[in-house]
Simulated assay, not measured.
Amino acid sequence: MHSAIWTAVSLFLIVEGLGPMLLPKVWKRGIITLISSPEKLLRRFGGAFVVAGLVIFYMVNK
């Protein structure tokens, strides 16, 4: 169980690190856009990511 959590954390860090490593200017613009977005929109995106993650988690562990 613990190894699965650490695997997920490591994959998350790899994916999150690709943006600033490969395309720092584009990544920076994206962050600036996120910061200036309304909170309601950020909540919707966050909710969509949570639902997508849960669906993928369910499909993988089915």
Rank of each mutant, 00 (worst) to 15 (best):
V51S: 04
R43T: 13
V50S: 14
I31Y: 05
L11G: 12
G19S: 06
P38M: 05
K62G: 10
K40A: 15
L11T: 13
G46K: 07
W27T: 00
R44S: 13
L54A: 15
I56H: 07
L22I: 04
N61Y: 09
G17E: 04
K40Y: 07
L54V: 15
L23E: 10
I14S: 08
A4W: 06
L41R: 11
R29H: 01
W6K: 10
P24T: 02
I31K: 07
W27K: 01
L54T: 13
F45S: 13
A4T: 14
F12I: 12
G17L: 02
V60N: 11
W27E: 00
S37H: 06
A52P: 03
I5M: 05
F45I: 15
I56S: 12
K62V: 14
F12W: 08
V60H: 07
G30I: 01
L22H: 02
R44D: 09
V51K: 04
L11M: 12
L18D: 01
L41K: 12
K62I: 13
F45T: 15
L23M: 12
L42H: 07
G30L: 04
H2V: 12
E16H: 00
P24D: 03
S37V: 11
L13C: 06
L13Q: 01
V60E: 13
V9N: 03
W6L: 10
P24F: 02
V51Y: 02
V50D: 10
G47C: 09
S37E: 11
L22C: 02
F57A: 10
K62T: 14
L11P: 01
M1R: 11
V50Q: 11
G53L: 03
W6C: 02
L22Q: 04
T33D: 06
V55A: 15
G53K: 04
A4V: 12
V50G: 08
I32F: 07
F45W: 12
R43F: 07
L54K: 08
G47W: 04
A48W: 04
V26E: 02
A8R: 09
I32R: 09
L22N: 02
H2F: 10
L23C: 04
A8N: 08
L41A: 15
M21W: 09
H2N: 12
L34P: 01
